[in-house]
């Protein structure tokens, strides 16, 4: 049982370390990347604790969707102009 306890300790401390690093990252991008890694580690934790349904859902959402959502939002928050369907762009200002 002792090696499994080592695995448990590694998973739990890894989750804490990833959360800490993600919150203290210098750039937003690093923070997002570390959060995606935390989602992957959470998948392993759910698998370890017998929550197999949750592990599958977290593998799909944590690995695929959340990262894509955050990266898309970062891209749009960084771009210089708003030129789409946001209400601001619909105002009838003539440039």
């Amino acid at each position: 049982m002792s090696p499994m306890l080592f695995v448990d300790g590694l998973l739990a401390s890894g989750a804490i370390a990833l959360a800490l690093l993600s919150l203290n990252a210098r750039e937003v991008f690093t923070s997002i990347v570390l959060f995606v890694c935390l989602g992957l580690l959470a998948t392993l934790i759910w698998a370890r604790l017998g929550a197999w349904d949750v592990a599958i859902a977290e593998a799909a959402i944590g690995a695929g969707l959340t990262g894509a959502l955050l990266l898309a939002a970062r891209h749009r928050l960084r771009e210089p102009t708003s030129r789409d369907d946001t209400p601001a762009a619909r105002r009838p200002h003539v440039s």
Binding site: W52, D53, A55, I56, A57, A60, I61, G64, L65, A68
Partner: peptide, 25 residues
């Protein structure tokens, strides 16, 4: 597969929906 297998093994609507949405993404 996840949708069908959800009746007797881990899987189900949420997992299948998330995987399908990821395919759409």
């Amino acid at each position: 597969y996840l949708l069908w297998t959800g009746a007797y093994a881990p899987g189900g609507a949420f997992q299948a929906g998330a995987v399908l949405a990821a395919a759409g993404v």
